[in-house]
Design a protein around this nucleic acid. Structure first.
Length: 198
DNA sequence: TAGGTGATCTTG
DNA sequence: AAGATCACCTAT
């Protein structure tokens, strides 16, 4: 297996990148445990055209600044006061795009994921949903800005999915974005039980 | 279906 | 400096 390259992340089309991340394998290795999980659900956010994106209208704040960096770094932020959401920054420096990882299928480190989630029984809620998967994998705001070509969080290239395996839908929880909430920028693997809100 | 939760952003 | 908002989750 090989790490996804910088060139993969610096591509100009965040929607296509979100779709192509399906089936790739997210690795977290931070001393708190070693985890592998297959990405099965993503959403694209485009800073220049998309009212749902935190960086819409060139909004440049302490929180959003990382999205303006060159692709291939982590954007982690706290949502609803409780949940850390994990995003992958894409595009070249100055173009603020990101892909939200909404669900993963656990491969390695499942016992430790259950400990992190406070679960005694195995079930599909372990890593389905953007807040749940970060808790399972131990991703926190201290991972903000982490280089995805480094050695603590990265993505291994795997076989992608064919178009017949990919479902395309509007994004979740972005009603505030008006008509941009209707954009079909959510992608997930057809029939995969780990996908959130099926 | 509603409430918890707190950093972040905007307004005045 | 304060109030509104918010890319969610869990248990009724």
């Amino acid at each position: 297996m090989t790490k996804l390259s910088r060139a993969f992340y610096t591509g100009d089309d965040v929607v296509q990148i979100a779709r192509n991340l399906l089936g790739q394998v997210l690795i977290v290795n931070k001393g708190s445990g070693y985890f592998e999980a297959r990405i099965v659900e993503t959403e694209a956010y485009n800073g220049r055209t998309d009212a749902a994106c935190h960086a819409h209208n060139n909004r440049f704040t302490e929180r959003t600044q990382i999205m303006y960096e060159e692709g291939g770094v982590a954007y982690v932020y706290l949502c609803y006061g409780i949940h850390n959401l994990f995003n992958i920054v894409t595009n070249t420096k100055g173009k603020a795009d990101a892909v939200l990882v909404r669900a993963v299928e656990p491969i390695k480190g499942i016992k430790e994921m259950m400990v992190n989630r406070g679960k005694t029984q195995m079930d599909y809620t372990l890593t389905s949903g953007p807040g749940s998967l970060t808790q399972a994998l131990g991703i926190k705001k201290t991972d903000y800005g982490e280089d995805l070509l480094g050695s603590s969080i990265w993505i291994e290239e795997d076989e992608g999915l064919s178009d017949t395996q990919v479902v395309t839908k509007p994004r979740i929880g972005v009603d505030y974005a008006g008509e941009d909430a209707l954009l079909p920028w959510r992608f997930y693997e057809k029939g995969n039980p780990w996908v959130s809100r099926k």
